[in-house]
């Protein structure tokens, strides 16, 4: 089942007619999107709210008919071949549930197994695998409405993967989750992809999702694709800054290093602090050069105990791309 192109769009666009009082107005939700996702890839689909992400996903799944252009998902035309496509894709909408809220979680899985026509062996095997990997065992008999958000999200992901789809689409999967739940979900998705070669497409506002899960990002702005490539490459093209976090042995006043901007400090008192943050442009200088300058400034009585580099925030990158285009 592996190999080939999973998603291919050409000039894909979608308009909505909205009514404002008496007048009708056409809003372009997606202008003309060209994108391609190969089997086994993990792709982050990012952009501001209203950039056309949800509209794209709905067209990929056959929920919305495109106004113009072409879309092929898993080799099928989503709208006319919707029922066949449903066997090939799994979708997790962050805001809408595909579980039966008043039933125990495992009963939803049983119904979905019937919905997708799984054989008893397939059902048993796949359910057991997902229950173990996503750690669902503790709440299988609890009605869905009583689950915590983290538990519900894991159950939703299991529900979307029950029929072993080739493509898993995740719409804001980690929104509202605590750090631990996010971590568990990401680890699971990495493993799922490794084991089954499942293609992932996710929309997210969470930098960590993109960093941990995706080899490639697609950035959409005002209904058109403006970037396709690695996240690091994206940060480079917009000149997004990286931040060096320094932990010092002795507190000092805010450091002033050429080519960097001070981004705050913690610990210490009277204007001196132990932890200092310096932002720098990776195009203009390097982390090594910044560190050398800091060490020189601190002199012999003080030293850098620890250091971390923070990658740019996805929101920040998106904002910069947008700003550069306007």
């Amino acid at each position: 089942m592996s190999g080939g192109t999973i998603i291919e769009t050409e000039g894909l666009g979608r308009d909505f007619r909205v009514r404002e009082g008496m007048r009708r107005r056409t809003v372009v939700a997606l202008d003309a999107l060209d994108m391609r996702v190969e089997a086994g890839e993990a792709v982050g689909y990012i952009g501001a709210n209203g950039a056309g992400k949800s509209t794209t996903i709905k067209m990929l799944c056959g929920i919305l008919v495109p106004t113009r252009g072409r879309v092929v998902t898993c080799g099928l035309r989503p709208v006319p071949d919707r029922r066949r496509l449903a066997r090939e894709i799994g979708v997790v909408f962050g805001q809408r549930s595909q579980l039966w809220w008043d039933l125990p979680t495992q009963e939803s899985f049983r119904i979905l197994a019937a919905v997708h026509g799984l054989s008893p062996e397939q059902e048993r095997g796949r359910t057991a695998e997902l229950v173990e990997r996503l750690e669902l065992g503790e709440f299988l008999t609890v009605p869905v409405r009583q689950l915590s958000l983290g538990q519900r999200m894991r159950a939703e992901v299991a529900a979307a993967l029950l029929h072993s789809p080739r493509l898993l689409v995740l719409d804001e999967p980690t929104i509202g989750l605590d750090v631990l739940s996010k971590q568990r979900l990401r680890e699971f998705l990495v493993a799922e992809r490794r084991e089954h070669g499942t293609t992932l497409l996710l929309t997210t506002h969470d930098m960590g999702d993109v960093e941990r899960l995706c080899d490639r990002v697609l950035l959409v702005d005002r209904g058109a694709l403006v970037y396709s490539g690695t996240l690091a490459g994206l940060s480079r093209t917009v000149g997004a800054e990286r931040v060096m976090v320094l932990d010092l042995a002795e507190p000092v006043p805010p450091l002033e290093v050429a080519g960097t901007t001070h981004r705050g400090s913690e610990g210490g008192s009277e204007g001196r602090s132990l932890r200092q943050r310096l932002a720098f442009d990776p195009e203009a200088t390097t982390a090594a050069r910044v560190l050398a300058a800091v060490t020189e400034q601190l002199g012999d009585d003080n030293e850098v105990l620890d250091l971390a580099i923070e990658e740019p925030d996805v929101e920040d990158v998106v904002r910069r791309v947008y700003a550069a285009r306007r």
């Binding site: 056959g62 929920i63 029922r83 066949r84 449903a86 909408f93 809408r96 595909q98 919905v115 997708h116």
Partner: peptide, 14 residues
């Protein structure tokens, strides 16, 4: 409003 219909679209029945 609840998006239940969108979920129906993801299942292989009419």
């Amino acid at each position: 409003k609840a998006g239940t219909l969108d979920v129906f679209y993801l299942r292989p029945q009419p």
